[in-house]
Design a protein around this nucleic acid. Structure first.
Lengths: 132, 132
DNA sequence: ATATTATAGACCCTATAAGTCTTTAAAGGG
DNA sequence: CCCTTTAAAGACTTATAGGGTCTATAATAT
């Protein structure tokens, strides 16, 4: 199992929006070029972030994508969930009597990861980036 | 991204070996039946656990699989790594100047999960099972 | 010797990731 | 009002990995 490439594109794009220009919209063309990915494919990914309310899109000339007003709250987990979905990483389909104790442990393990990713805000990372 | 079904089979099989019979070998046939999976497929999975030194296999009549001598040390992470491999869940292929800060965070997140899975021993879970 | 067990490896099928292409909708500037 | 520029939507294709079968081989007990 692996995080998808789409998640990597999404994270990098978000960081780019923060560092390059938090307010003025940036065209997908430009965002795509710096990651060496096709604009149409990246736009598909970014549409998910729009639907999740993390960025806004502006059509037409001088349009593009820009961070939404709640930008400072956006966490790594938010982005990952927007792209990968929110289903558990581990699902036991077997029919045991009670809840599967293995699944309980796996769920808890996933929670440890989530707990960390929930604390990691893009805004903070972006700040460290521009500072250096 | 998801943990594979194979990982679920592996974890359940290990737990079964602990609870049913830690010493006497059990045929893959029996292990497979209780999980409703084909014996040939399960054997492929179990061979990975053999190679990882977690269980032993005995060919021939009255053969099967049984726990290895280091059984009490086996953790969830050991089993997961044996089945899924040990590659990172997140790999950033881009060529930034220095190490990718996004990847650094993702790696750390994975570490949180690993840290927990490393503490979880099958033997302990099995004990709780038989106790109840 | 024979029956019983695991191992190996070739093979297949399916679902999902990854990506392309084309059309449509929205917005701005003249 | 027209034209250009931008994103959105959706159909489609391709690549990869998961999940699984099948058959032949090796090991072992009786």
């Amino acid at each position: 199992m692996k995080f998808s490439k789409a998640t990597n594109y999404a994270l990098h794009t978000m960081l780019m929006l923060f560092t390059v220009s938090p307010d003025k919209p940036i065209r997908v063309q430009q965002l795509a070029e710096s990651q060496d990915v096709s604009p149409t494919y990246l736009s598909k990914i970014l549409t998910k972030l729009v639907k999740a309310g993390m960025i806004e899109s502006i059509s037409g000339a001088n349009g593009g994508y820009r961070l939404s007003s709640r930008k400072d709250d956006i966490t790594f987990l938010d982005i990952i969930h927007a792209i990968e979905g929110t289903a558990s990483l581990f699902e036991c389909d077997f029919v045991h009597g009670d809840e599967c104790s293995i699944q309980a442990i796996m769920k808890e393990a996933e929670e440890k990861m989530h707990g960390y990713l929930k604390k990691m805000k893009l805004a903070v990372l972006a700040q460290q980036h521009t500072k250096v």
